[in-house]
Design a binder for these strands. Structure first.
Length: 662
RNA sequence: GGCGAAGUAGCUCAGCUGGCUAGAGCACACGGUUCAUACCCGUGGUGUCGAGGGUUCAAGUCCCCCCUUCGCUACCA
């Protein structure tokens, strides 16, 4: 194949807060298939993946585990890299955001953007609404007041750096409109335009002072660079970008990226903030960003304590690496989420891999051995039925190519399997076992088997980017080299007279769903045991390493300020979800002899049933307000942890409804 | 509440700018075959194309309204 130019593809970098499950690994298998395909198709491919290793969550998790953040991420990054290698991921570069060169460049980038005036510090002082905990731009204010609650906005207390997004918004809108392929699938493009770009972009906070585990802002070391400027930059730092203009030759060659493959949850950051950062740096924008759907396990939430998380290494142990690759690639639709279960895995393995492909290779080799001692020769005894077989087989590359151009990887695989199905049909059409009984048809029989071996070779050549091990195993049994794409378009390349193996190996063994039950059960038990172990460990270290949370201090208040607030114990006597709202619960709260209706955003943490009967802390004299159209006459108080989990405040000893809290 | 997507055979889904008797895979049933991993090949669907209106010679495909599910977003006192 001629050189078609460079192709730079990336995945999102994986967050090192824990071991990723199969739903996370899906992305990198998809990226690997595309990378291998493009490479084989004549592109000079550079494929980068890696890990995102900073942030408060990791700082906390490391503290919980009683190790330094660096030790923590070293461990997880090792696990993630191990999974990549296990899955045969052909990455050219595995970048870690704790890599020295990355950290240095992020600092330089930050400084440069600051010097250019794209990043500014505390410019929002005076436009911060404390009750709403929101920053507002001048244009968003209504009569100079908070557009949400109508109250005065005050100077911000949190010192932070912001990126002036609005400066580039129009250019980005223009770019998106002129490049319809930029955001894939297109439905995502509309979401970005309608929700963020057209209503007006807010500036983005790009630094934090509330935790330390990050890249320090070198000219103001109270601050660390907040996630996106750090993480997204990996796409350029990994290939030798330099913010001072001394980028490497490699960077000049590879940038802009041809494809950023990411999950649909982070499309906003890749299609809005990242392009704008690049514009600010004067670099070209990536050609395409594909926000792929998710691979879900049933509709069941995966959790370790339930023992139902599917990890790539467990799956590979039961089914084999290529079966896992096949499954995630085949089962994933282009736009909607796919689902994975053990039963579905078994079904796909049996029908596609064992029956259609494995059995085809096996029966072909068996016949060659049986009739010709394994020697496959083209005797030129053609017949009419051969024409269609050859047409289908040699035409498959073009079909696959068309699908891959549109990133329709699942459909590309289907085309390849259609080739194998056509081969099975060809066996029925030619009936080699009948030919074998007639000595006069020996040449014809040889030719039929040659045609089959040649067809399988072509199919294996096409299959290689998706299932590299399988392709290699097939060609080893056929005693020939793997085919390049060019030679999959010509029939008759397999060397006539080659002897295939006389001990055909089963490529994929059929499985019965029951056979894997025991293995699945063992995996579940192991996961449960691990969580139990982790919990025990947490308890052991909880006294010395208990995680703590620091929040931004608010202004000092006087006793008079405090005395204005009336807190009482309230008993929740009824509770129901607020219709048409996703997060709100509406409770009837008995406070002394009166009953107040209070709406709270805690649906994700408590069910209405759980709420009823609780005696909780209530701020009683808060001005009533309507939430989602429902009147709320007070506030239930909760504690909130770093992950946003909520816990209602209750009295330490039983207290009657209405008791004052003072 | 705003914006958007989807609702097609038991299951998973294709059906582009409207056009001939609405398709594929899996599962199921029957028939054929035996080289092969009880495999392969063939045959089999009266599906209200979510409900109801409308445009048109013609609508799963366009318009209106409704229902359901999902995504993004807002609210979250």
């Amino acid at each position: 194949m001629q050189n078609k130019g460079k192709y730079y593809i990336t995945t999102a970098i994986a967050y090192t807060s824990g071991k990723p499950h199969i739903g996370n690994n899906y992305e990198i298998v998809l990226a690997d298939s595309i990378a291998r395909y493009k490479r084989k198709d004549g592109y000079d491919v550079f494929f980068q993946t890696g890990t995102d290793e900073h942030g408060q969550k990791i700082e906390l998790k490391a503290a919980e585990a009683g190790v330094s953040p660096k030790e923590f991420v070293d461990n997880i990054a090792g696990v993630i890299k191990g999974l990549c290698d296990m899955l045969n991921i052909s990455y050219d570069k595995f970048i870690r955001t704790t890599d020295d060169f990355h950290e240095k460049q992020v600092q330089k980038i930050f400084k440069r953007l600051y010097n250019q005036g794209d990043i500014y510090k505390g410019a929002y002082e005076g436009l911060y609404c404390t009750p709403c905990e929101s920053f507002w731009t001048e244009s968003q204010l209504v009569d100079g007041k908070c557009p949400d609650c109508g109250r005065e906005v005050k100077p911000a207390k949190e010192e932070a750096y912001f990126f002036k997004m609005s400066r580039y918004a129009d250019r980005l809108i223009d770019h998106i409109n002129k490049h319809p392929e930029f955001i894939q699938p297109v439905s995502r493009k509309n979401e970005m335009m309608n929700n963020f770009l057209l209503p007006g972009l807010q500036d983005l906070c790009v630094s934090r002072t509330s935790f330390k585990w990050g890249i320090p802002v070198d000219f103001d070391d109270k601050h660390v660079v907040y996630v996106w400027l750090d993480a997204l930059s990996n796409y350029i730092t990994g290939i030798g970008y330099d913010a001072d203009g001394n980028s490497t030759e490699q960077f000049g060659k590879l940038w802009p990226a041809d494809l950023h493959l990411i999950g649909k949850d982070i499309i906003r950051f890749h299609t809005i903030y990242w392009p704008i950062f690049l514009m600010a740096l004067g670099e070209e924008l990536p050609h395409q960003i594909f926000g792929h759907p998710w691979l879900l396990q049933n509709n069941d939430k995966m959790s370790k304590s339930k023992g139902n998380i599917m990890y790539a290494d467990d799956l590979a142990e039961v089914f084999g690496v290529d079966a896992v690759r096949y499954f995630v690639l085949h089962e994933m639709p282009f736009e909607n989420d796919g689902s994975i279960t053990w039963d579905l895995m078994v079904e796909r393995l049996n029908s596609d891999l064992a029956n259609t492909l494995g059995n085809l290779v096996n029966r072909t080799i068996s016949m060659s051995n049986q009739y010709f001692g394994g020697v496959v020769s083209d005797k030129g005894a053609a017949a009419e039925v051969d024409a269609d077989l050859k047409a289908v087989v040699t035409g498959t590359y073009d079909k696959v190519e068309a699908k891959m151009d549109g990133l329709r990887v699942a459909d590309a695989l289907t085309e390849i399997f259609n080739l194998f199905k056509r081969c099975n049909k060809y066996i029925d059409e030619t009936e080699p076992w009948v030919l074998a009984k007639d000595e006069a048809k020996r040449d014809r029989l040889a030719t039929v088997l040659y045609n089959l071996v040649e067809s399988i070779s072509i199919g294996a050549g096409l299959l290689e980017p998706f299932m590299p091990e399988t392709a290699a195993r097939i060609m080893k049994q056929l005693n020939s080299d793997i085919r390049d794409f060019a030679s999959t378009k010509t029939f008759g390349v397999y060397a006539s007279g080659t002897k295939v193996t006389d001990t055909p190996e089963i490529l994929f063994a059929r499985l019965k769903p029951k056979e894997i039950d025991a293995k699945v059960e063992a995996i579940a038990e192991r996961q449960k045991a691990e969580t139990a172990g982790e919990k025990a460990q947490e308890n052991d270290t909880s006294v010395i390493n208990a995680p703590v949370i620091d929040i931004e201090p608010k202004d000092e208040i006087t006793y008079e300020d405090f005395a204005k607030m009336q807190f009482q114990i309230g008993e929740i006597i009824a509770c129901e979800a607020v219709p048409k709202s996703k997060k709100l619960l509406c409770s009837q709260v008995k406070i002394g002899s009166q009953v107040k209706q209070i709406v709270s955003g805690i649906k994700a943490h408590y069910t209405p049933e759980e709420m009823v009967g609780k005696k909780v802390m209530v701020l009683v004299n808060l001005k009533p307000a309507k939430l989602a159209g429902v009147l709320s006459e007070g506030m239930l108080l909760c504690a909130e942890d770093a992950d946003g989990a909520l816990a209602l405040m209750t009295a330490e000893k039983p207290m009657p409804s209405g008791a004052e809290i003072c």
